[in-house]
Nucleic acid binder design. Structure first.
Lengths: 199, 199
DNA sequence: ATGAATACGTACCGACCGGTACGAACGTGC
DNA sequence: GCACGTTCGTACCGGTCGGTACGTATTCAT
């Protein structure tokens, strides 16, 4: 009688599973800022009790890191695919510009960029993962430039490390502006200006 | 007997004045992020009781807006002086680059930029002031470019509004990177790359 | 059927948040 | 000396935070 009313099953109703919680938390952290979404809110959105979440992820930091890892595997992986594709250097730059300024998937900005901007507010696990992901992305960007030089598609003149760092910052800035609601056309115009020096 | 011990004067000891609170809060918000400094912390740092602070500023939003206004009058004003000086267009660009990447006063970044990055977390007064300040800065930047075109120091080719927006974003990005602790030389290198398109 | 192991959510913890009620201490006019 | 209006800080408010103790429901081996 304690649980029979309202038709809710008592034992198994709430916890969907790790995947579902990760998905929900990722979307919440992505839309709105991460520090604007409490653990309580995630539990409510995902329909999971707080102890369940803590059993699965250990702490808020653990959850955040897991979310960031998942984001890297789903969203950022497509960036790496793009960079590894057999397109022209110039075509890849165009694709990057479109990705950052037009892609509707990035309407709310980029979770990676947002976390990077508020790094100091994150826990140690998340910060460490963030550092690793930055380095990985940086290597991919650098590869883009070295490849372009080898193929003779870019005259170079800028150290590949500097160019990679510059590219990462410019893309991050464009994604930040989109997260702030700036008109995509304006974002694209700024980004084209910034990329001109890389052509 | 209630107040005679420890030599503390009861009636007049804490509140220095509005200036002192503003100065303390500005430094605290500037170093560390604003959302990392609570009203309680400001009171403790300034040696003022919470009711005194609320009597003077009305709310946290009021305090934040007052701090931002003061920041505009002290720090950002020097930027406007720089822009209005009778230097060459190219020299002004160099000065802006140095300001954002080398000036030790900007070691902890720029309070204006930091608040702009976390706009959604701020109160309505502060947001409104922020918008006004953005527009003002934007006008000053645009003036820089129209003047350069008039004087024949810049061939133009970019709409002044776009150039002004681009300049504001690039300077903001450089200041964000400095706030994140990035090596000033690296910041300068990136900023020089970004400014090349404006020369 | 039954006892052990497991998985779960209610209800709570202390800390801190932004904000305020209220009485004590003050300078001032008389 | 003394009442008065003003100015101050103590001590509190309700709410939310991240995190957990603990009783209960379920599952499984036997």
């Amino acid at each position: 009688m304690s649980n029979a009313d309202s038709g809710v099953r008592p034992g198994r109703p709430t916890t969907r599973n790790r995947e579902h919680v990760l998905e929900t938390a990722m979307n919440a952290y992505w839309q709105e800022d991460r520090s604007a979404v409490s653990v309580n809110a995630v539990c409510g959105l995902a329909g999971v009790s707080k102890p369940s979440l803590y059993r699965e992820f250990g702490s808020e930091d653990g959850l955040t890191a897991a979310v960031l890892a998942r984001y890297g595997q789903t969203v950022l992986a497509s960036l790496q695919v793009l960079l590894a594709s057999p397109q022209t250097y110039s075509a890849k730059l165009d694709a990057l510009i479109s990705f950052a300024s037009d892609d509707p998937k990035m309407d709310a900005g980029c979770l990676f960029v947002k976390m990077r901007a508020n790094r100091s507010r994150l826990g140690p696990q998340t910060q460490a993962l963030l550092t690793a992901m930055e380095a990985k992305l940086q290597r991919h960007y650098a590869g883009l430039f070295t490849e372009a030089v080898e193929r003779g598609e870019w005259r170079g003149g800028i150290a590949t490390d500097l160019a990679a760092s510059y590219l990462q910052e410019q893309l991050g800035m464009a994604l930040s502006q989109r997260a702030a609601g700036k008109n995509p056309d304006a974002v694209r115009a700024c980004l084209e200006l910034a990329m001109a020096v890389l052509r």
